[in-house]
């Protein structure tokens, strides 16, 4: 089939060349917005500290480790999350759980002695959450992760086991 060429460019008309008409149109548009902002107080800004954006439940923010009713972490130190993590930012040291701390019997024989996540390396991909067989590690909806020193970016077990309601 022969190619059909459509030339959509057309020369400027007289009124377009003068350019002033277009300027006036543009000025009217900005004036409309100005009136909207100035008199009607319409704006798209979210007044941040007072008003917060609603993120969806799928938002991937700061990690947490879910805990059971005895406040024991669900993690069994299986290393799956550390293995799958593409950023290699999870460091787990496994240990044996004393049976006194495990009223549910053989379910959680292992426990993480140390569980560190380096939030500066993390890319919040959520792979750790997907890999976890115990639904232990999860990403919360918390997005305010500003810190004042590098050390604070290391999420340790104490921080990870914080109480999170819903998705946090």
């Amino acid at each position: 089939m022969a190619t059909k060429t459509v030339n959509v460019s057309k020369p400027y008309t007289w009124s377009e060349k003068i350019y002033l008409l277009a300027i006036v149109q543009g000025l009217l548009i900005t004036l409309k917005h100005f009136i909207n902002g100035f008199f009607l107080r319409k704006h798209n800004t979210i007044m941040y500290p007072e008003v917060r954006r609603e993120y969806s439940d799928r938002f991937r923010g700061a990690h947490f480790i879910s805990i059971d009713r005895n406040k024991t972490e669900n993690c069994t130190a299986c290393y799956l999350c550390q293995t799958v993590c593409p950023a290699e930012c999870i460091t787990i040291v496994a240990g044996e759980r004393e049976s006194a701390h495990n009223p549910d019997g053989v379910k959680k024989e292992k426990q993480p002695v140390k569980f560190d996540i380096d939030a500066l390396r993390c890319c919040f991909c959520g792979f750790c959450e997907e890999a976890c067989p115990k639904d232990a590690i999860k990403l919360s909806g918390k997005y305010e992760m500003a810190i004042t020193s590098r050390e604070e970016a290391k999420y340790d077990l104490v921080y990870l086991k914080r109480e999170v309601k819903g998705r946090g």
Partner: peptide, 10 residues
Amino acid sequence: RGSAWMQGRV
């Protein structure tokens, strides 16, 4: 502020 109002900001 005028520029903000024209751009839908505060």
